[in-house]
Amino acid sequence: MNKGTRTGVRAVLARWRGRDIELKSPGEIDAMRVAGGLVAQALAAVTAAARPGVSTGELDAIAEQVIRDGGGVPSFLGYHGYPASICASLNEQIVHGIPAGTQVLADGDLLSVDCGAIVEGWHGDAAVTLAVGTVAPADLALSAACREALDAGIAAVRPDARLTDVSHAVQAAAEAAGRRDGSPYGIVEEYGGHGIGTSMHMDPFLPNHGAPGHGPRLVVGMALAVEPMLTGGDAETRELDDGWTVVTADGSRAAHWEHSVAVTDDGPRILTLPLG
């Protein structure tokens, strides 16, 4: 059960119809942009530092320092007991990988880094997948396909669209990339995007697959974290004994890309791009 959410059939229906979705004013969206820009800055610092011989624990410290120096608070740290400021998911890890000083990057690794920050009560959340050293072409193609799915999902975040229009756009782009690459990618179904604003995870849940035309209608002032996760093999997942790290069941590699996006009259506004 999600903390602070209504329960029962009526509550589920209300959330699905959009009645519980937080709407932001233009000024509040601007405030979210500040938080999102800080997330982008932290991810840029991690990207610059991610190379063979560097530990994921070191990357976590870098991200936390950037966030705090920018006047923010890491939103992941302490969230339901999570012990770090980033999620560092390596190779077959899909999401929620816990960084550690003993986890040292090696040439050829594929690393997904998820990061969140809070500035004056507003959240930003984004993820990137990084190639460490010289990475296999198939892994680079997997990451590129996931990013294409993200871009397609973002493009669908428009007023009067339905929530699953975004889901379908992600799925269609991932499937098209798989046909092009001759490698059908697994679309992770158990995890997906979400609303974001005064909390990191809010209604609605945003699946990364599904038929279009369903769910709440998107209206100006909504903000969504769009975050496809693809695997190089089967989409089945399992959770490790640490209670956080999610891996591919078949050991195939995984990629994860994410942006926080606002619905505006001018179309999607990406809130987690670098400022400037």
Rank of each mutant, 00 (worst) to 15 (best):
I118R: 03
H194W: 06
A88E: 01
G251M: 09
G197V: 14
A169C: 12
K3L: 15
T134V: 13
I270Y: 00
S199P: 12
S199W: 14
A255C: 08
A149W: 08
R68N: 14
Y79L: 15
G4P: 04
M1Y: 12
S183V: 14
I196P: 04
A100D: 08
V104E: 01
G4S: 08
N2F: 13
L105H: 02
A176V: 11
V39C: 05
A106G: 11
A31P: 04
A174K: 03
D250F: 11
V113W: 00
G153W: 10
S55D: 00
G8A: 05
S85N: 03
T164S: 04
A156P: 01
G121F: 02
R19E: 13
E58K: 05
L150N: 02
P228M: 09
E92R: 13
T272D: 01
D181V: 15
D234K: 07
G192V: 10
D241S: 09
S143T: 12
G37I: 09
V128P: 02
V128Y: 03
A176L: 05
A249S: 02
H123Y: 07
R33V: 15
C115W: 00
Y185H: 11
R180M: 10
A145G: 10
G182A: 08
A106H: 07
D160V: 15
T7A: 08
L206D: 02
D250T: 01
L271P: 03
V157H: 00
D265F: 13
A35G: 12
G101V: 09
Q103N: 14
A106E: 06
A173F: 04
S252E: 05
I86K: 01
Q103L: 14
P228A: 10
L111A: 09
A84M: 10
D69G: 10
S167W: 11
A44L: 09
A211W: 12
A61E: 02
T264E: 00
I154W: 00
A172Y: 05
D165Q: 05
G36W: 00
S25P: 03
G57F: 08
A152M: 09
V166R: 00
V219L: 07
L110D: 03
V247E: 01
Q103G: 12
E148R: 13
G178T: 12
G78D: 08
M200C: 12
Q65S: 14
E22K: 06
H123W: 06
A100S: 13
P207M: 11
A14S: 05
P83C: 11
G182M: 02
M202I: 15
V34I: 08
E92C: 13
S252C: 09
V219A: 12
D242W: 11
L77Y: 06
R15S: 14
T264N: 01
T102W: 12
A155T: 07
